[in-house]
């Protein structure tokens, strides 16, 4: 794909992303941050592509290097994604409980 298209996509999504949230209640700052942190583990996509390509198309030392470093990248990114969404879910559930207690 042409680099210019990629750069253009990056710019467009950045502009859109910048205006997507407006007023966030301060209660939600930490969960939102944590959720976005999980989303930033999306780099997992790049890591799995690297691991997959080295597994099929590369041989010898380079394949080993690709598997080791790419594998660490896949592990790291999936820790980020799974841990991030899990933590966010836990935080949000905690808010639910707090609200129910204060209402009752």
């Amino acid at each position: 794909m042409n680099p210019l298209i990629l750069v253009a996509v990056f710019i467009v999504t950045s502009v859109v992303g910048y205006f997507i949230i407006k007023n966030v209640p301060s209660l939600l700052h930490t969960p939102l941050m944590s959720g976005m942190n999980a989303l930033s583990g999306i780099t997992l996509l790049g890591a799995i592509v690297v691991v997959g390509i080295t597994l099929f198309a590369v041989e010898g030392n380079h394949m080993l290097l690709g598997q080791i470093f790419g594998g660490i990248a896949v592990i790291a990114a999936s820790v980020n994604v799974v841990g991030g969404f899990g933590v966010t879910h836990r935080m949000l559930k905690m808010f639910d409980k707090k609200k129910k207690q204060s209402k009752s």
Partner: peptide, 12 residues
């Protein structure tokens, strides 16, 4: 998706 997260993270 990286672009979206980067920009909205900055705004947050």
């Amino acid at each position: 998706i990286g672009g979206i997260v980067g920009a909205s993270g900055l705004f947050l």
